[in-house]
């Protein structure tokens, strides 16, 4: 279990980052875009944890991944609250239809 080479984690994280980027670019629904951002944050976290395996007495990668997790939770709650507010105001969360700045 501890013999997995670091490259495999990095390739998995790169794939997850590419999928997240594709989701952010393709989807029109604001909630789906937020889930794509979560995927990209998770890809960064996998990289941090994978490199943290070589750092058994300090664990700096795992601690930074923990803080990234906290910030991701805060970001998700704020962004979903904004999505709900935007829906109440514009009656849509389609990102292409949100063109007005001063509503």
């Amino acid at each position: 279990m501890h013999n997995i080479p670091t490259q495999h984690f990095l390739i998995l994280a790169a794939a997850l980052l590419a999928i997240g980027l594709a989701m952010v670019l393709i989807k029109k629904n604001a909630i789906m875009v937020l889930m794509g951002i979560e995927l990209m944050l998770n890809a960064a976290n996998i990289n941090l944890v994978a490199f943290s395996r070589n750092d058994a007495d300090q664990l700096q990668g795992q601690l930074l991944a923990l803080f990234v997790l906290v910030i991701a939770a805060a970001e998700a709650s704020i962004a979903l609250a904004m999505v709900i507010k935007i829906f109440h105001h514009f009656k849509t969360i389609d990102l292409d239809e949100l063109k007005e700045l001063k509503g």
Binding site: A14, A18, L21, L25, I26, K27, N29, M32, D96
Partner: peptide
């Protein structure tokens, strides 16, 4: 639900795929 129509699908997929290929070669 408004998510049925997507925009610029092939362009976005090619951007994401090229970024993955770039990262893959870098990692190797």
């Amino acid at each position: 639900y408004p998510s049925s129509k997507n925009r610029a699908v092939w362009l976005s997929i090619s951007v994401a795929l090229s970024m993955f290929i770039l990262l893959f070669t870098l990692i190797l």
